[in-house]
Amino acid sequence: MLTRSIAYRIYWAGRYLERIENIGRISIIAINSGISLDSVAKGYGLEGQKELFDYIRTSFEYLRENIRSFAGERLMIEVNEMELRINSSKEDLLGYFNGIISSTVSLGNALESYFNDRGSPLRVRSQQENQPEGK
C-alpha cells in the first residue's frame, strides 16, 4: 500500500537523512583537514558552528516526523538512537560526528529492510466475478 501522502513522506525522510549524513561526513573531513566548523557552516549558508548544530537538530526533527507517519517500532528505535547521538556531548567533535554517521547508516539499513520486507509489489488484479448460479 502506498498512498501519495506516504510516498511524499518517504521521499522527504530520505532527503533529511541524506542531509544529516552529508553534514557529518563534510564535518569529519573538515576536522581532519584542520578547517573550522564555522567555515563548514558558512559553506552551508549558516552563520556559525552553533547554527550548524541547530541545522542538524532541525533536520532530525523533520526526519522523525516523516518516518513516524509510516514506520513501525523497529525504525523508531533507530530514530531514537540517532536522537541520542545528536544530543550527545560535543567535546570530542570527531567522535560526535562519527556517532551521527553511524546512526544514519544504521537507520538507512533499517529503512532498507523495512521496505524489502513489505511483501509482493502492487499489481493490478481482476475483481472476482459473480457467476449467476441460481437454481
Binding site: G119, L122, R125, S126, Q128, P132
Partner: peptide, 23 residues
C-alpha cells in the same frame, strides 16, 4: 452472453489477492 451483463466487473491495485466473499 454473460460477458455483457456481469453484475460487477473490475480491477483493483494491491499487493495481495482478493475474493468475492459473499453475494
Amino acid at each position: 452472453d454473460f460477458a455483457d451483463v456481469s453484475p460487477v466487473i473490475g480491477s483493483f491495485v494491491s499487493s495481495g489477492r482478493g475474493q468475492l466473499k459473499n453475494v
